[in-house]
């Protein structure tokens, strides 16, 4: 064969389809059949990045089947610096074993990185969910190595604005809210090509029933565009922002 090509192969600069990971052994099922066919599952022992415009668009519902699967098989799930409180009643209702959840709050990015590194390497933790503030590519690289070392997975939630940054993650998904669930764009996938936008139907957060047409509370703001909002703190400009009711 061409010596130049040999050299490139030896240095690992050329990706070979034969070396791509086996989809069945080192992947977790996502719990959504259409996502499983699209992605082949969540990578095991690797970093996954989820890029979202803001928290609360459905990123947890996306991960729920995996959380349920891991916690029920007795694997610990560590949450590093979640932006809000993971609400135990809702998690328990979704079938997650609360005894396997650990929420870690760190004061410093270094502590967070260290903690995640420890958790990923320890082989005692199935999944790390983390909300880092401005992670550097070097830090992510370290986490990727730690994940590969310990065979644990990590989900890193990042801002949408980081889409253009290079990342060593095995899988990068850009999430956007969609009326039916989530719109997912594959930005990077190890061993395969980036994909097009895809809409994933998530279970309805309320009842699983079709969304009712207009169950309007009596004094709620009018939602038809163009009409004046009569009541509610958001409407009239002279209406001051109400105080936090729990602070009184």
């Amino acid at each position: 064969m061409n010596p130049l090509l040999d050299q490139l192969l030896e240095k690992g600069h050329v990706w070979q389809a034969t070396q791509s990971p086996r989809p069945d052994t080192d992947r977790y099922s996502t719990g959504y059949p259409e996502l499983d066919t699209g992605l082949g599952g969540w990578p095991k022992g690797a970093l996954t990045e989820l890029l979202l415009p803001h928290t609360g668009i459905g990123e947890l519902r996306l991960c729920l089947p995996l959380l349920k699967q891991l916690s029920q098989s007795g694997q610990a799930i560590f949450w590093f610096d979640p932006p809000h409180i993971p609400y135990a009643p809702a998690l328990a209702r979704a079938g997650i074993q609360l005894s396997q959840l650990f929420v870690v709050h760190t004061k410093h990015p270094k502590d967070q990185l260290w903690g995640m590194d420890q958790a990923l390497r320890s082989q005692a933790c199935g999944l790390v969910l983390a909300w880092p503030d401005q992670p550097r590519p070097g830090d992510l690289r370290r986490l990727q190595l730690a994940a590969a070392d310990g065979g644990s997975s990590a989900f890193i939630m990042r801002k949408e604005s980081d889409t253009q940054q290079a990342s060593p993650a095995a899988l990068r998904l850009q999430l956007r809210p969609h009326p039916d669930g989530l719109s997912i764009t594959i930005l990077k996938r190890r061993g395969s090509w980036a994909g097009a936008e895809h809409v994933l139907r998530l279970p309805d957060p309320v009842t699983g029933q079709p969304i009712p047409s207009h169950p309007m509370p009596q004094d709620s703001p009018d939602t038809t565009p163009g009409t004046t909002v009569i009541q509610g703190p958001w409407a009239a400009e002279d209406n001051p922002v109400p105080n936090n009711p729990l602070q009184e």
């Binding site: 993971p86 609400y87 709620s220 939602t223 509610g232 936090n244």
Partner: peptide
């Protein structure tokens, strides 16, 4: 049914919701 994210301090709702 409860939300997965719970806010320690409730935030004022500053916009009219799209759907109820």
């Amino acid at each position: 049914q409860r939300p997965l994210w719970f806010l320690d301090r409730p935030q004022p709702l500053l916009e009219a919701p799209q759907d109820w």
